[in-house]
Amino acid sequence: MSTELAPGLFIQIFTPPLQLSGFKVIAFDMDSTLINIECIDEIADAAGKKSEVAAITEAAMRGEITDFKESLRRRLALLRGVPVEALQQVYEQRLRLNPGAQELMTAARTAGLKTLLVSGGFTYFADRVQQRLGMDVARSNELEIDNGRLTGRVVGDIVDGEEKKRQLLALCERVGCSPLEAIAVGDGANDLPMMSAAGLSVAYHAKPKVREQAMVAINEGGLDRLLEVVHPPR
């Protein structure tokens, strides 16, 4: 049973406050977590297929479609033929960092945490967001492009929920810390594997299934509200 610590901020399973310096790694989903959009839905808008793609995205994020890889393949297939310029338009015109993202990242870095962006979205956006926020590691899906257009496929294996978890555990291993010293932040069902592996799980404006399982749920305000629960160094 969760407790409302402050308006729009819920906790369960632990007693706050925690100290940010007590953690070594913090991992973030990208779409609708670090940024304000689902990039694949906005790319689909360029193909006139946003409603069709967005419906699949919503079902996947709510956990109604359990096979994330298959849901992504279905959505990608609808993007076949979209010109690569559409990616730049989405990035420049529609993508914004969510409130508090920069503040939380700065606090995490100051406290000595390694930062990970791990996304079922695309490198075109994830690499740029990583650079903007000064994050240590980014892992996402690379869109396959042929003659300046999307093929409707990705290069290599798809990053799904299990891969997100694997990336979190791999970074913990490199840092030399326990997963219990990691924080995982996400909003959709495919974030649950990495959230369950971390010592502290955070749901940000998340789907009901994710809010119910997270130790911290930020339902109002920005990402930096986590600092009300996990205090930065003075």
Rank of each mutant, 00 (worst) to 15 (best):
residue 24 K to N: 05
residue 208 P to G: 07
residue 195 M to G: 11
residue 85 E to R: 10
residue 22 G to W: 15
residue 83 P to Q: 09
residue 134 G to F: 14
residue 49 K to I: 05
residue 36 N to V: 15
residue 230 V to H: 03
residue 68 F to M: 01
residue 109 R to N: 14
residue 145 I to D: 03
residue 158 I to A: 06
residue 92 E to F: 13
residue 114 K to E: 06
residue 16 P to M: 08
residue 22 G to S: 15
residue 92 E to L: 15
residue 76 L to D: 00
residue 112 G to W: 13
residue 159 V to W: 02
residue 20 L to M: 07
residue 195 M to Q: 14
residue 90 V to D: 01
residue 86 A to R: 10
residue 233 P to G: 12
residue 44 A to I: 00
residue 193 P to H: 00
residue 135 M to G: 08
residue 173 E to T: 10
residue 28 F to C: 03
residue 156 G to R: 10
residue 72 L to I: 01
residue 92 E to G: 14
residue 125 F to L: 09
residue 176 G to I: 05
residue 195 M to D: 08
residue 96 R to V: 09
residue 96 R to Y: 14
residue 211 R to P: 05
residue 147 N to L: 11
residue 160 D to G: 08
residue 178 S to F: 04
residue 151 T to G: 12
residue 38 E to M: 08
residue 39 C to W: 09
residue 38 E to Y: 13
residue 45 D to Q: 14
residue 81 G to Q: 08
residue 35 I to F: 01
residue 120 G to E: 00
residue 222 G to T: 00
residue 165 K to T: 08
residue 159 V to R: 02
residue 12 Q to M: 10
residue 59 A to H: 10
residue 179 P to F: 03
residue 197 A to E: 06
residue 227 L to P: 01
residue 17 P to I: 02
residue 135 M to F: 07
residue 141 N to Y: 12
residue 213 Q to I: 11
residue 64 E to K: 09
residue 121 G to Y: 07
residue 67 D to C: 10
residue 175 V to T: 05
residue 163 E to W: 12
residue 144 E to W: 11
residue 160 D to P: 08
residue 169 L to Y: 01
residue 196 S to H: 11
residue 131 Q to M: 14
residue 234 R to I: 14
residue 156 G to L: 07
residue 183 I to N: 02
residue 60 A to P: 05
residue 176 G to V: 04
residue 153 R to N: 14
residue 204 Y to G: 00
residue 8 G to Y: 14
residue 200 L to T: 00
residue 152 G to L: 15
residue 172 C to F: 02
residue 80 R to L: 11
residue 163 E to F: 08
residue 161 G to V: 03
residue 144 E to I: 14
residue 182 A to S: 08
residue 25 V to I: 08
residue 200 L to F: 04
residue 45 D to R: 15
residue 97 L to A: 09
residue 186 G to H: 12
residue 176 G to H: 15
residue 78 L to K: 06
residue 61 M to A: 01
residue 202 V to A: 01
residue 196 S to I: 00
residue 119 S to Y: 07
residue 175 V to M: 08
residue 212 E to P: 04
residue 52 E to W: 01
residue 187 D to L: 05
residue 220 E to A: 13
residue 210 V to T: 06
residue 198 A to E: 03
residue 169 L to D: 02
residue 138 A to C: 14
residue 103 E to S: 09
residue 158 I to F: 10
residue 183 I to L: 10
residue 60 A to D: 04
residue 164 K to W: 13
residue 97 L to M: 13
residue 16 P to E: 07
residue 94 R to F: 10
residue 234 R to Q: 12
residue 78 L to H: 02
residue 139 R to V: 13
residue 172 C to K: 01
residue 95 L to D: 03
residue 53 V to S: 02
residue 62 R to A: 13
residue 57 T to F: 04
residue 209 K to I: 13
residue 129 V to A: 11
residue 3 T to C: 08
residue 162 E to M: 10
residue 16 P to T: 05
